[in-house]
């Protein structure tokens, strides 16, 4: 009762502050800040020890139902890629790896209720790892969160064999904090998680590139640029990805865009010089590499090597493909 009284007082105070037109200094409770949401995620019945695979399947078919995205893996492949029989389940790293193999970007959620509710409000389902029991007898389980009911204070999730099971938010918090509030947003590369930071999103996109999905990564970098148009790191990653795909015109465009924001970026100067060298613009390459300079010994040694290559007429180690 006493707790309730304080809660009401706090809410009343916050309301007054907001009505008087000034920003509230007291942070609002996250459960009050976000609106109710209900996401139409198709339900898939559980298969023994395969909640990892079914969670990916449910979220994938959700995106398939509302975007041009098409899953790459069959149900059998999802099962065969996620299950570790001796563990009786799926590891987090393989859940993410399999989601990527299915053509989705896997973004690790900031471990807070705020971030979760923010995604739900934007109609992005989140797969969470919960411990249904205690640490002394852990029962780990993956489930897609499909909504939030502000009035009832419940979290909706496709829990085991129950579609859109409403779980009291206090109970949900306990189950979820036992996994360190671990959750992932699986999303087609052309879309952005609502709660994403540029650095963390870039990492997720680069993970796609590193696992052989460079075209998907390029789509992700480009959508990231729509939200963070002047982000140096994203521009660098996009330019490199184009370069590795032998799309030299596009790569050059983004190196130059980066350099228009940060003219002395040593890595971009180096890579642009290399590109100019490969595309037969020897003099310009030399002029560009001369601007590059770094205190970092390793970066400087790369710059020196590029300079040497340009001076030798761009013939040294001509464009080998990995």
């Amino acid at each position: 009762m006493k707790g309730n009284y304080h809660l009401h007082l706090l809410l009343a105070l916050a309301t007054v502050l907001m009505m008087s037109g000034c920003a509230s200094k007291e942070p609002l409770l996250s459960t009050e800040r976000y609106n109710s949401s209900s996401i139409k995620v198709p339900f898939v019945a559980p298969r023994s020890d395969l909640c990892g695979a079914t969670s990916i399947e449910m979220v994938s078919s959700y995106w398939q139902s509302i975007t041009p995205y098409t899953p790459r893996l069959s149900q059998e492949e999802l099962d065969a890629r996620t299950l570790i029989p001796a563990k009786g389940g799926t590891l987090q790293v393989e859940l993410m790896a399999t989601a990527r193999a299915n053509g989705l970007l896997a973004y690790t959620l900031t471990p807070t209720l705020d971030a979760l509710l923010q995604e739900l409000e934007k109609q992005h389902p989140v797969i969470v790892l919960v411990n249904r029991s205690y640490s002394w007898y852990p029962l780990w389980h993956y489930a897609p969160v499909t909504g939030y009911n502000k009035k009832d204070q419940t979290i909706l999730m496709h829990f085991s064999d129950r579609p859109n099971e409403a779980i009291n938010i206090a109970t949900f918090k306990r189950l979820w904090e036992r996994s360190g509030n671990w959750g992932i947003v699986l999303i087609p590369p052309g879309y952005l998680p609502a709660s994403a930071s540029s650095k963390a999103f870039l990492r997720s996109a680069y993970d796609l590139e590193k696992t052989g999905m460079r075209d998907q990564a390029i789509i992700a970098y480009k959508s990231a640029l729509q939200r963070w148009p002047k982000d140096i790191d994203i521009l660098f990653a996009l330019a490199n990805a184009y370069y590795h795909s032998n799309k030299f015109t596009a790569a050059e465009k983004y190196y130059r865009k980066l350099l228009s924001i940060e003219p002395l970026h040593p890595l971009a100067l180096n890579n642009l010089s290399d590109l100019l060298c490969h595309t037969g613009r020897h003099n310009e390459a030399l002029k560009t590499i001369k601007k590059a300079d770094s205190n970092n010994i390793e970066i400087q040694s790369i710059i020196n090597a590029t300079q040497k290559k340009i001076l030798s007429g761009c013939t040294l180690q001509a464009s080998p493909k990995k």
């Binding site: 020890d49 389940g89 590891l91 790892l129």
Partner: peptide, 15 residues
């Protein structure tokens, strides 16, 4: 970390 990483599965079999 294979020995300590959690593996999400079903509660039924374990129970």
């Amino acid at each position: 970390e294979i020995d300590t990483l959690p593996a999400g599965g079903d509660a039924v079999g374990a129970l």
